[in-house]
Computed example of a mutant assay.
Amino acid sequence: MSGHGRHSRGQGRSRSQGSLRDHKGQRYWFCCPGCGPAFDADPDKYAQAC
């Protein structure tokens, strides 16, 4: 998920596609639809990478 996260360059597109998640008070946007489910499976792992 390199390059994905709350400061992703794909924020405009992600908002329209609904590829965002809230976790522990932070909002994370994803530039591709497949990353949301990966984040859901282990959000702490991916939140640390951002």
Rank of each mutant, 00 (worst) to 15 (best):
A47G: 03
A38Q: 08
K45Y: 12
H4C: 11
R15T: 08
Q17R: 15
C35I: 02
K45Q: 11
H7T: 13
Y28P: 00
A38T: 04
S14C: 05
H7V: 09
F39K: 04
Q48F: 11
F30I: 00
W29L: 06
S14R: 01
C32K: 15
A38K: 08
R13M: 12
D22A: 12
C35R: 07
A49Q: 15
G36K: 11
R27S: 08
G36I: 02
G10L: 13
Y28E: 00
G3V: 05
G5W: 01
R9H: 08
C50A: 10
A49T: 07
P33D: 07
G25D: 03
A49S: 10
L20M: 13
P37L: 06
D40E: 09
Q11L: 15
H7C: 09
Q11V: 15
Q26D: 13
Q48Y: 08
S16N: 13
P33I: 06
H4Q: 15
R15S: 07
M1R: 11
D22H: 07
C32E: 08
C50D: 15
G10P: 08
R15H: 07
H4T: 10
G18I: 03
P37A: 12
A38S: 09
C31G: 15
R6S: 14
S16M: 11
M1E: 11
D42V: 01
S16D: 15
H23A: 02
F39Y: 04
S19E: 07
G34D: 08
C35L: 07
H23W: 11
S2K: 15
G18S: 04
H23E: 05
C50R: 00
D40F: 04
P37V: 05
C31H: 11
H7L: 09
S16E: 14
K45D: 07
C31R: 14
Y28M: 02
S16I: 10
W29S: 02
K45T: 11
G12D: 13
F39P: 00
R27D: 05
R9Q: 12
C32N: 14
D40K: 06
H7E: 14
P37H: 06
A41H: 09
G25M: 02
S8A: 09
D42T: 02
G25P: 01
K45E: 12
Q17F: 13
S16L: 15
G5L: 02
Y28A: 00
R13A: 12
G18M: 01
R9K: 11
F30M: 02
R27V: 08
Q11T: 15
R9I: 06
C32W: 10
R21I: 07
G10K: 14
G36H: 01
A38L: 13
H7W: 10
A47S: 12
G3I: 06
R6H: 09
G3N: 10
H4R: 14
C50W: 00
R13G: 06
F30L: 00
